[in-house]
Amino acid sequence: MIRINLLAVDRDKKKKKAVTLQAGQKMTIGCSLILMLAVLFIGWRYWALSRESAQLDADIAAAQQETTRLHSIIQQVQQFEQRKAQLQQRVVLIEQLRKGQSGPVHMLDQISRALPPMLWLTELKQVGPSDVVIDGKATTLTGLSDFVSNLEASGYFKRSIEIVSTNTETVAQPASELVKFSIKATFQQPGETQPPAAGAKPGL
């Protein structure tokens, strides 16, 4: 008589089912964990990007405000520079007018101071913005030389003064000869002068 142990077969089937069930549960749990981690990572990444985006928006807004402020400052600086340039032009114009008014007075004063003894002037005429022609007479050529040296040493006339012409003129009473001369000089302000010549004779 043959006996079949059905209980052993049932136990083997139950073991196989239990093993299969446990493997499926582990796989399901693993997939669930992976999915949860992926969702958490995506959520964290989205939050981080949102935060960075908000920070960038704030930085851009601050930069725009700073740009607006700097633009206003630049406009104020430009207005200040324009105002400064206008004031400088006015100062230059006033200085030019002042020099133009005082120039002839100083020129005549220096010419008068430079006159040596026995020399006198017959004509003085302006031939340019700063050039002047001086005509006169002297008893000697030395007097003319002293006059030119004194003008150059005054600091109000540029060197070298040009002697345009010299002629001898005879005078009947008393019988003598005079030196008739014409010189050309360029007037300048004292701040533009060259150092005075050493040994120049002062005018009387």
Score class of each variant (00 low, 15 high):
N5A: 05
L7V: 08
L7I: 07
A8D: 09
V9Y: 10
D10F: 12
R11T: 03
R11G: 01
D12Q: 13
K13F: 07
K14R: 10
K14W: 01
K15C: 05
K15P: 06
Q22V: 06
Q25Y: 11
L33V: 08
L35F: 00
L40E: 01
F41Q: 10
S50W: 03
R51K: 11
A58M: 03
I60A: 09
I60K: 10
A61N: 05
A61M: 03
A61S: 12
Q65N: 07
E66W: 02
T67W: 05
T68F: 01
H71T: 14
H71R: 12
I74K: 08
Q75A: 13
Q79N: 14
Q82M: 09
R83M: 07
K84G: 02
A85N: 12
Q86P: 04
L93N: 13
L97I: 03
L97S: 10
K99M: 09
S102R: 08
M107T: 09
R113Y: 00
P117H: 10
L119P: 02
L121P: 03
T122P: 00
K125V: 09
G128M: 02
P129F: 10
P129M: 10
S130R: 13
D131R: 14
D131K: 14
I134C: 02
I134N: 03
I134T: 00
A138C: 06
T142E: 14
L144R: 01
S145P: 03
S145R: 12
V148T: 04
S149M: 12
N150M: 05
L151H: 00
A153N: 01
S154V: 04
G155M: 05
R159L: 06
S160P: 15
I161N: 01
T166R: 10
N167L: 14
A172I: 11
Q173L: 12
Q173Y: 10
P174K: 07
K180F: 06
K184R: 15
A185V: 05
T186I: 01
T186G: 01
Q188F: 04
Q189M: 15
Q189W: 15
G191Y: 13
E192D: 15
T193N: 12
P196L: 00
K201C: 04
G203M: 02
G203C: 04
L204C: 06
